[in-house]
Amino acid sequence: MFLHIGGNTVIPTRDIIGIFSYSSNENKITGEFLNANEEKGTTLKIDDSNNKSFIVTENQIYYSPIAANTLKKRAKLGFNSSEFKKLDI
């Protein structure tokens, strides 16, 4: 399954490590993690002006204009219960 995360961007749900609210970047460790990935060039902003969430995959971090809870609900629809437990969403 694929998850639509905004704009014209979809990602395979099997690649998702976590979906987080953008406001969690106010946490010092999370902010450092995001900044380090921006410096490495492994981030993609779907909409520069309206980040509501970020999605972490093994190779990329996506900033999305869609709320984390909405993305989690969409992702949940694409998993059977055993796969969903693995992601801890």
Rank of each mutant, 00 (worst) to 15 (best):
I29S: 02
F79A: 04
E26D: 09
E26N: 12
F84C: 07
D88C: 10
A75V: 06
F2V: 04
M1A: 07
R74G: 03
T9H: 08
T43R: 09
E39L: 13
A68M: 07
E26L: 06
T70P: 01
T57H: 06
I17F: 07
K73R: 12
K73I: 11
E38M: 13
E32R: 10
I55P: 00
D47F: 13
K72S: 04
G7P: 11
I17G: 00
S53A: 06
N37L: 13
A67K: 09
N25Q: 15
P12I: 03
F79M: 11
T43F: 09
G18D: 06
S23C: 08
D15Y: 04
K73T: 11
I11M: 08
A67F: 05
G31E: 03
I66S: 03
Y22W: 15
S23N: 14
E83Q: 15
Y62P: 03
I29G: 01
G41L: 11
I16T: 02
Y22F: 14
G7S: 15
K28G: 02
R14S: 08
I17Y: 03
N8I: 12
K40V: 00
I55F: 01
G7L: 11
S23D: 14
N59K: 13
N80W: 01
E38W: 12
S53E: 00
K72G: 02
L44H: 14
T70R: 03
D48P: 15
K40Q: 13
P65M: 04
S53C: 01
A36N: 15
F33N: 07
S49H: 09
N37D: 14
K85P: 01
T42Y: 09
N59V: 05
D47V: 08
K28H: 05
L34C: 11
R74Q: 07
F20D: 02
S64K: 09
I17A: 03
A75N: 07
K73F: 07
A68R: 07
V10F: 15
I17N: 02
G6R: 05
E32S: 10
T42N: 15
L3F: 04
N51S: 11
N25S: 14
T13D: 08
I89W: 10
I11Y: 10
S23P: 04
Y22C: 12
Y22V: 09
V10G: 08
H4R: 06
K72C: 05
G78S: 13
N69C: 08
E38N: 14
T70Y: 00
I29D: 12
N8E: 15
L34V: 12
L3M: 00
E32K: 12
D47N: 12
N8M: 14
